[in-house]
Every structure is written in structure tokens, then in C-alpha cells.
């Protein structure tokens, strides 16, 4: 009896450590930066290092919604780029038309969700095809880098919050919205169920079609927010601006403890994973004086080290 209680306590403990892992990874990266350059750990330092963290966090959130439904969006990078271009051209010049176009994008995502569900298509291929569509549309809309982000957007993105840098505040808000929306509401549970056990969901009388469409629409919505945030920071757009976001967003979700199947995702983890990727991606490498040739490799190394640490901690948990 006592042994069983002790064992269950030990399991709880490990489960807790597992849940804390994304945060630990982030702490690891911050600690490495602090060790290499103590001055980076300041209000100004974090504002600089996390400069692009908001769009990355939003894109990761977008990716998380499709992953929750057992799908994958390989077009989120080009889509973010497309949104950047709409924001820097249409939304700037003719706000009404711009808003319509952005809403249309969300609508297209919902339609994709419906198509994938009704025809039982592999989301990888459909979104792969869509990535060409977004790229093409971006080039047609903005053949040369340029355009200009609306002033109000630039103002929002350069807000100076007291004590805590704005990117961190924004990340907390995004994480909180995701957490309450997906983990705390009853329809959020249905959405996760679409990935966890679609058969049970259907038998319980829920519309899988509606769930898939909602998940994809949410991906579109957060993709739009990501693109708007990105162009608010860079102030002008170019066709390749969102290129790295597909892989960054997938890596962020996985680092945050999400899994590709079974509707197991964590919004808070995803945001933390995105912050880890944003920090690890460049500032850390500049401090380490890594030659440019090997910077890409260092990116991969950081990803591997963090995941390896995760395996070391959870190994015993999985053996149970």
C-alpha cells in the first residue's frame, strides 16, 4: 500500500517534470546566454533578442491548432509571407479591402479544413500545394520588396511596456488566450478530441467537419496575426519574409511538448517552444562567435540538445 502510494507519487513527480520541460529548455537557453554575455539579461537585451518572438509565437500557435487535429500545415511560412504583403500593400493603401482580403484568407483556411475532412486528404500534400499558391500570390501582389506597414501596426509593435519587455508580455497574452480557449473551454476539448479520438467524437454526435474547419480557421487567424505582427516589426515586406516559419513553427510545437498525433498539444508549451527557438535561432550564436558557415549547424545542435535533454529526463517515465 505504502509502496504503491510512493510509486504513484514518483510518477506524479516525473509527470510534473515532463510538463515543466519546455520551460526548462527555455531556462537552459537563457542561462547559456547569461553565461556568455551577462549584459544581455536586461530589459533592453530581451527586447532585442526577442524582437521576432511575437510573430514566431503566433505562427507556432497557428501550427499547434492543425497539429491538434492530427494534421500538419507545411504552408504556414509562405502564408505568413503572403499576409505580410497584404498588410504592407492593401491594408496600408485601402484598409477596407485589406481587411476583406485577410478575412478571406481565414475563410480559405476553413475551406481547406473542410476539403481535407470531406475528401479525407493528407493535409501534408494539400498544404504543400497551398504553399505554392501563397508564394505565387505573394509574387503577384508584391513583385519587389517594399510596401509599408500601417502606422498603427508599427506603433503597437514598438510599445514599451513597464518593467517587462513587450515581447514577453505579448507572449504571455498569446499563451493565456490559447490555454483558456483550447484547454479550458468545452468546445476546446471537442477540438482536441478531433485529433485524439475522432470516432468517439462522431459517435457522441459532434460534427467532425465543424471541428476541422474551426481548427483550420484558427490556424488561418493566428497565421494572419503572425504576418501582421511580423510586418509591424520589419515595417516593409518582401516575398521571402516568412520562409523559415514553417519549420520554426513545427519545431516550436514539438519543443513545447506537443505530439504529431492524438491531439496532444500544449498552447503554453508551444509559446515557450517558440520563444526558445526565437532565442536559440540567432542571438545565442552571435554571442558564441560561431563562424557563419556553421551557424545553421548550431541551430540544429541546439534543437538536438534540447530534445536530448528531454529524453534523458523522461526516459524512466516512458519505461513504466
Amino acid at each position: 500500500m505504502q509502496a504503491a502510494a510512493a510509486a504513484s507519487r514518483a510518477t506524479d513527480m516525473r509527470r510534473m517534470i515532463r510538463a515543466m520541460l519546455p520551460a526548462l529548455s527555455l531556462a537552459l537557453v537563457v542561462a547559456a546566454i547569461a553565461y556568455l554575455n551577462p549584459r544581455a539579461i536586461s530589459y533592453f537585451g530581451f527586447t532585442l533578442m526577442l524582437n521576432l518572438a511575437i510573430p514566431i509565437a503566433l505562427a507556432t500557435m497557428a501550427q499547434m491548432f492543425v497539429i491538434a487535429g492530427n494534421d500538419l500545415d507545411l504552408s504556414i511560412g509562405p502564408f505568413v509571407g503572403f499576409v505580410c504583403c497584404i498588410t504592407a500593400t492593401l491594408l496600408h493603401d485601402t484598409p477596407g479591402l485589406g481587411v476583406l482580403a485577410l478575412l478571406g484568407c481565414v475563410g480559405i483556411y476553413a475551406a481547406l479544413g473542410a476539403l481535407i475532412h470531406l475528401r479525407n486528404l493528407p493535409s501534408i500534400v494539400v498544404t504543400l500545394g497551398m504553399s505554392f499558391v501563397w508564394q505565387g500570390a505573394t509574387i503577384l501582389l508584391l513583385p519587389k520588396p517594399g510596401g509599408s506597414a500601417p502606422q498603427w501596426l508599427q506603433d503597437i509593435m514598438s510599445v514599451k511596456t513597464p518593467f517587462v519587455p513587450f515581447p514577453i508580455v505579448a507572449a504571455v497574452i498569446v499563451a493565456a488566450i490559447g490555454y483558456f480557449g483550447l484547454m479550458r473551454t468545452s468546445y476546446g476539448a471537442i477540438l482536441r478530441g478531433a485529433g485524439g479520438n475522432p470516432v468517439a467524437l462522431r459517435r457522441a454526435g459532434w460534427s467532425l467537419l465543424r471541428a476541422k474547419m474551426t481548427l483550420f480557421a484558427l490556424t488561418g487567424l493566428f497565421g494572419v496575426l503572425s504576418g501582421m505582427a511580423l510586418v509591424g516589426i520589419t515595417t516593409s515586406a518582401d516575398a521571402n519574409i516568412g520562409n523559415g516559419y514553417t519549420l520554426l513553427s513545427i519545431a516550436g510545437v514539438i519543443l513545447g511538448g506537443g505530439e504529431f498525433t492524438g491531439g496532444r498539444v500544449s498552447p503554453v508549451g508551444a509559446v515557450i517552444g517558440a520563444l526558445t527557438m526565437a532565442m536559440a535561432a540567432s542571438p545565442l550564436l552571435t554571442f558564441m562567435h560561431i563562424p557563419p558557415d556553421w551557424q545553421v549547424a548550431a541551430n540544429g545542435a541546439i534543437l538536438i540538445i534540447v530534445l536530448a535533454a528531454r529524453v534523458l529526463i523522461t526516459r524512466r517515465d516512458e519505461a513504466l
Binding site: L115, G129, V133, Q135
Partner: peptide, 9 residues
């Protein structure tokens, strides 16, 4: 690019 994508889908 646009047509390639649409045709694949």
C-alpha cells in the same frame, strides 16, 4: 507558382 499549387491540390 499559383497554378502549380492549385493543380496539385
Amino acid at each position: 507558382l499559383l497554378l502549380t499549387g492549385l493543380i496539385i491540390v
